[in-house]
C-alpha cells in the first residue's frame, strides 16, 4: 500500500517557534481575560437558543392520511408513521450519498500510482452498486406505505450535515487512500448500526416483509464494513512499517 504520511516542515506546533512562543506566553500570562467567567457563558447562550428553537423541519403526511388507503398503512394505525418515514428517508438519503462516496473512493484508489492490489477496484464497484440497490430498496419501501421517497426528511437532512466532512475528505486530491478509507469507515460504521435499528423498527411497526428485505441489505453492509475496516487497518500498519 502507498506510504501516506510524510516527514516535513509542519509549522503548526509551538516547537517550530520556541523563541516566539515564550514571548507569547509571557504576555498571555500577565494579560487577564477581558471578562470573567468561562465556557459556561457559551453553554448558557446555546441553552437559551435551544429553548426558543423550532424543529428543523417536518415529515409530510403519508398517502393514507391523504385518503390513499393501503394494506401497509393499515398496519401503522395507532403508531407514529411519521417517525418511521423519517428514518426510512434518512436511510435512503444515506445510501444514495454512499454511492457518491464510493464513486469518489474508486477514483482515488484507481488514480494513485501503483494502486494497491489489496483493494480490488471490482470489489469497490460491487459495494458501490450494492449501495445503489439499497437506495432503490428504500424507495420501494417508502412508496409501499404511501409516502414520497423524493422527500428530504428531517433525519435525512441532519445526516447530510453530519456527512459533509466525509465527502470533503474523499474528494480532496491531497488526501491519501488511507485518509479516504477512514472516512468511508466512519460512514459504514454509522450505516451498519442504522440498518440494525431500522430492521428493529420495521419489525415493531409490523412490516415483516420489509424487515426481511432489510436483513439482506444488512448482510451486504456487514461485508462492506469488514472489508473497509481491514483495509484501513492494513494501510495504517503498513504506513508505520509494522505490518505482519
Amino acid at each position: 500500500m502507498e506510504k501516506s504520511t510524510a516527514l516535513g516542515t509542519n509549522r503548526t506546533g509551538i516547537d517550530m517557534s520556541p523563541v516566539d512562543v515564550k514571548k507569547m506566553l509571557a504576555l498571555t500570562n500577565v494579560t487577564p481575560p477581558s471578562s470573567n467567567g468561562d465556557e459556561r457563558a457559551i453553554a448558557e447562550m446555546r441553552s437559551r437558543h435551544i429553548a426558543d428553537a423550532s424543529v428543523i423541519g417536518s415529515v409530510p403526511p403519508p398517502g393514507s392520511l391523504k385518503g390513499v388507503a393501503s394494506t401497509a398503512m393499515q398496519k401503522l394505525t395507532g403508531k407514529n408513521p411519521e417517525a418511521f418515514i423519517d428514518k426510512l428517508g434518512c436511510r435512503l438519503a444515506f445510501e444514495r450519498a454512499g454511492v457518491r462516496l464510493y464513486d469518489a473512493l474508486i477514483v482515488k484508489a484507481s488514480s494513485i500510482p501503483g494502486a494497491p492490489s489489496e483493494i480490488p477496484l471490482d470489489t469497490l464497484r460491487k459495494f458501490r452498486n450494492e449501495e445503489l440497490r439499497h437506495f432503490r430498496l428504500l424507495e420501494g419501501a417508502i412508496r409501499s406505505i404511501g409516502a414520497d421517497p423524493t422527500t428530504q426528511t428531517p433525519s435525512a437532512d441532519v445526516d447530510g450535515m453530519a456527512s459533509l466532512g466525509l465527502m470533503q475528505v474523499l474528494t480532496d486530491p491531497r488526501t491519501s487512500l488511507s485518509h479516504c478509507l477512514e472516512a468511508i469507515l466512519i460512514a459504514e460504521l454509522a450505516d451498519n448500526d442504522a440498518w440494525q435499528l431500522l430492521i428493529q423498527l420495521a419489525a415493531k411497526m409490523g412490516m415483516d416483509d420489509m424487515a426481511r428485505d432489510f436483513e439482506t441489505a444488512l448482510q451486504e453492509e456487514d461485508v462492506h464494513l469488514a472489508h473497509i475496516r481491514q483495509w484501513f487497518k492494513e494501510s495504517v500498519l503498513d504506513d508505520a512499517a509494522v505490518a505482519a
Binding site: 507569547m24 498571555t28 494579560t31 487577564p32 481575560p33 477581558s34 471578562s35 470573567n36 467567567g37 468561562d38 465556557e39 459556561r40 457563558a41 457559551i42 448558557e44 447562550m45
Partner: peptide, 9 residues
C-alpha cells in the same frame, strides 16, 4: 464577551 468569557490562549 460571551465567547471569550475567562478565555486565555
Amino acid at each position: 464577551q460571551t465567547v471569550a468569557a475567562g478565555y486565555q490562549w
